[in-house]
Write a protein that binds this DNA or RNA. Structure first.
Lengths: 120, 120
DNA sequence: TGTCGAGTTCGATGATTGTCGAAACCGAAG
DNA sequence: CTTCGGTTTCGACAATCATCGAACTCGACA
């Protein structure tokens, strides 16, 4: 196969012909599934807060050990939400020693932003 | 100057303590629920396409009778998706004669856009 | 008044999701 | 090699969701 079928990224979305703001033209059905997956990942209060903590983390990354105690829910559930964010392409994870660090993917965030507002 | 005093929806969400881009600060848990509901509404391929058709409609509005035939799914299901979009605050509906017209709410769209990208 | 068409609501059903505890995994430190 | 703490995976369960057909509501019109 010519493509590694990774999580979504900007290049794939451009290939789908989808970058124009939705105020300007209809989103093609082929791109809608991929884009909806990213919006869906943000469509949970816990995940939205996780995403904001990751995106606003000083140094651009944050340890799971700093995310988990910030919520009332269990560790496995936090891990599940992080997996959803990762599979949507909004974050990446890297293990260093015993700890796992998450990092935002600003290109996709800008992609979604631009979809919602022409001025993005 | 005291406050920029933008559109009403933006100010309302400011009252929730939420307007700063998520790359800048963590989204407060009180605001996360409302914002996540809007993202969740966009987290379905059909609804994302519906939203883009509404937002890009000439004249700013579009009839349900123009939306329904654009998809393979039944009328009741289209109606259900439009209801979800309406309850999230992303669209409004107005009945005129026999037809119902949907219209986008650009203030909330800009709100979500600005959350994802500081430059929005 | 009665009928017709556009759209919504209702009720049901199969699929997906959020959550947890238990277990497994993976480096690091004894 | 064994233990330990951080993180993920597994298995289960209740709740939510997308979808449909049937029934209903609302205007228009004859």
């Amino acid at each position: 196969m010519s493509k590694p079928a990774r999580a979504l990224d900007v290049i794939d979305l451009n290939a789908d012909g989808c970058c124009a703001p939705m105020t300007q033209s209809r989103i093609p059905s082929e791109a809608a599934g991929t884009l909806a997956q990213a919006f869906k990942a943000l469509g949970d209060p816990i995940r939205l807060q996780l995403m904001s903590m990751i995106a606003s983390a000083p140094g651009g990354e944050i340890c799971v050990c700093d995310l988990t105690p910030a919520f009332e829910i269990s560790g496995p559930t936090i891990s599940h939400h992080l997996k959803v964010l990762k599979e949507s392409g909004l974050v990446t994870a890297e293990r260093r020693a015993s700890w796992v660090y998450y990092r935002a993917q600003p290109a996709l965030m800008r992609q979604l932003s631009g979809l919602l507002d022409p001025r993005a």
